[in-house]
Amino acid sequence: MTRYAMVMDQRRCIGCQSCTVACRTWNDLPDDIIYNPVVSEGVQGVFPDVHATFTPLICMHCDNPPCTICCPCKASQQDEDGIVWVDEAKCMACKVCVNSCPYGARDLSSYDRPLHSFVRKCNFCKDRVREGEQPYCVMTCHQKARIFGDLDDPQSEVSKLVNSLKVERIFPELNTDPHVFYIPDLGGHR
């Protein structure tokens, strides 16, 4: 079985937002839709003893996604390889999935034509991934801070990283079983 997952190496991320822009252009997103913001609390500490951490966000492609069972139209769904996606043709934009996602990974574009908006979210660039390529945000990352692959393949880089390092996940206590893993930055200049 294939189970796609992503690892965010926060030790390498510098918050350039290339992935954010790349995703917007590759997927032709309207201006108000952001699939993968890179957030940071800014520089923390007392100068000059300070640190900063950048957290690239994206749909967590949870194993227990709260956003699919709540969808009345079966538009929000998960494939066998773990990819959670929205079939735009089936969506009626009730937004229940938007509200149900603890990660803010879904949004409804307000710039679409009237009476025809739909919920949009990251789908791990499934068209690219199934052609054997990397999701576009992974490819565009100069810093190689995003690593994508098949978690079920013990030879894959994600599998090795997830199993060999102490990785973290966002809000694991919600039992959503997110499949985006973070290698935390220890912070501070060394």
Partner: peptide, 15 residues
């Protein structure tokens, strides 16, 4: 967002 297709609400079993 798409009021005209509200009947889709009945598609799911679980929601």
């Amino acid at each position: 967002g798409q009021p005209l297709v509200f009947l889709r609400v009945f598609i799911s079993r679980t929601a």
